[in-house]
Every structure is written in structure tokens, then in C-alpha cells.
């Protein structure tokens, strides 16, 4: 049995909040640079350049990547052989308060209580992830309960239509997290978790097809046209009931921020 103190967890959570808000994820930065190189529209190239510059300025000058420092969503994977001394819930909330102060977050706003998702896993490690979720994009999230006999084309259509409807409002280029299966609530959680997976790494045929279709919509960076409407589509799946097929979609703006540490 390994013991981890609540105080240690608080400190790590605080550090993760700072890191996530000031340093854009490296996989996102790589995909932004790739997109800038493949864009043919001059304006789209320039806007992607501004987004990349923004990430560099944020890191160098310790400014939040976006003034919307998000609603912090914390994911914990707790090994079943870990014992936590002190209150885990308090440690997470206090860690977020401490971290957000250091990340120069919006003045008087309060950032706790946060949304926490806990998974109990085998082993004796504690994995902590902080995802500061901006609400311009969170507001575009959708859930649809499909019939179990729905065709894949219907599900693709639902996702593509949602991107069309979001248009320029939620800061494209987007990263789309999709959750298929489980229950209504669980599919929504899967969609959010899908945003944590590194983008541009592994990609199924459905993900690749969707990305291609979305990037033909000509929404582009800031909604002003171009080939880069989304940087990635990440789908997570789970078995479900024979009478249903939940599909949830979680939008991320181009500032997809998260940071992880393991004790």
C-alpha cells in the first residue's frame, strides 16, 4: 500500500493548472504548424500564424493562452493500492484555487468546486490531469440518442452538421471529442476524455474520414475560410444497450489545454 498525502496532491494539481493555462499542448502546436504549412489561403495562414505566436507569447511571458481560463475539469486515475491521507476532494479544490491564482486567471472569479472524474484502476499510482475547458466551445456540445440500427453515415452527418452550426463562434480550428456508447452521461464523459488523447497520432478510418469531410466545410481559422476547420477528430467507444446508441460530441477550440502528472 502506497500512501500519498493530500498536501502533495494539492501542490501537483496547482502546478498542472498553471502549466495547462500557460503552455499549449505540444501535440496541438505540432498540428497547428502542420496546418499552417498546408493551408493555401493567405488569410488562413496568417491567422494560424497568430495562433502559433499567441502560444509562444503565452509561454515566454507567462500569460494565459486565453483569457477564458476555462472551467477546470480534473481527471484522477487512482490505483487501488494507493492510500490517500487527508481529504482528496479538498486537495483537488484547493490545488485548483492555488494554481489559478498563479496562472493569473480572471480576477475575482472562483474556480472551485471543480468537476472531478475519478477512475479506480489496478496498481499503486495516482495519475492526475487538469483540462481547463473554455466555454465558448463547451456551449456547442451535443448529445444525441441514435437508434441501434442507425447507419454510420447518420452519425457522421450529426457531427458534421454540429460543426456547421458552430461555424466561427467557438474558435476554429476545432478539436472534436466524440463518445459513442454507454449511457447518455457516459457518452458525454467519453467525448470529453477523447480530448485528452494526443491528436495527430493514431487515427481510425472513421476519424480520418470525418476530419476530411469537416475540413471541406471551408469554415477555416476564425471562420474566415480555409482548409483548417478542425485539427483532429478523436473518437472513444464503449459497449451499449441493444435498444440504443448514444453519441456525444464535445468541442474544443484551438486552445486545447491539458496537463498530466503521475505519482
Amino acid at each position: 500500500m502506497k500512501t500519498i498525502t493530500a498536501d502533495k496532491i494539492k501542490k501537483i494539481i496547482a502546478q498542472l493548472c498553471v502549466k495547462a493555462n500557460l503552455e499549449l499542448r505540444s501535440d496541438v502546436l505540432v498540428m497547428l504548424k502542420k496546418a499552417r504549412n498546408t493551408e493555401s489561403s493567405k488569410r488562413a495562414k496568417k491567422l494560424l500564424g497568430a495562433i502559433i505566436d499567441n502560444a509562444n507569447v503565452a509561454r515566454a511571458e507567462q500569460l494565459a493562452i486565453c483569457q477564458d481560463t476555462g472551467m477546470p475539469v480534473v481527471f484522477l486515475e487512482v490505483g487501488q493500492d494507493v492510500r490517500i491521507s487527508g481529504s482528496l476532494q479538498q486537495a483537488v479544490n484547493k490545488g485548483v484555487e492555488l494554481g489559478y491564482k498563479k496562472a493569473w486567471a480572471r480576477g475575482k472569479s472562483t474556480y472551485s468546486p471543480v468537476v472531478v472524474h475519478v477512475d479506480i484502476v489496478p496498481g499503486s499510482k495516482l495519475k492526475m490531469t487538469v483540462l481547463p475547458k473554455g466555454f465558448g466551445c463547451e456551449n456547442k456540445s451535443l448529445l444525441k440518442m441514435f437508434s441501434p440500427t442507425a447507419k454510420i453515415e447518420e452519425i457522421k452527418g450529426f457531427i458534421i452538421d454540429a460543426v456547421k452550426a458552430a461555424g466561427p463562434d467557438a474558435c476554429p480550428p476545432y478539436v472534436l471529442g466524440v463518445g459513442i456508447g454507454g449511457t447518455a452521461d457516459f457518452a458525454s464523459l467519453l467525448a470529453k476524455k477523447a480530448l485528452l488523447r494526443k491528436i495527430g497520432t493514431r487515427s481510425s478510418k472513421i476519424e480520418a474520414d470525418l476530419l476530411k469531410a469537416i475540413n471541406k466545410l471551408d469554415i477555416g481559422p476564425m471562420g474566415l475560410g480555409g482548409k483548417t476547420t478542425a485539427l483532429a477528430v478523436n473518437i472513444e467507444t464503449y459497449p451499449t444497450h441493444i435498444a440504443g446508441l448514444p453519441v456525444a460530441l464535445n468541442f474544443s477550440c484551438h486552445a486545447l489545454r491539458s496537463a498530466t502528472a503521475t505519482l
Binding site: A50, N54, E61, L63, L224
Partner: peptide, 28 residues
């Protein structure tokens, strides 16, 4: 007019002075 969306750190460079003009109780 449209400002560069999601580029809050970059836009900081163009702000030379800032002070609260009204509704201070609203914080940000």
C-alpha cells in the same frame, strides 16, 4: 470588427494602458 480569436496573450502586446472605468464590482 473581429479581433484574433483565442489569441489573448498576443493581444496583450497592443494594450498600452488599462484602468477600470466602471462597475468595478464585476471584477473581470
Amino acid at each position: 470588427l473581429l479581433a484574433y480569436a483565442g489569441c489573448g496573450a498576443l493581444i496583450n502586446k497592443y494594450i498600452k494602458k488599462a484602468k477600470v472605468a466602471a462597475y468595478k464590482d464585476l471584477g473581470p
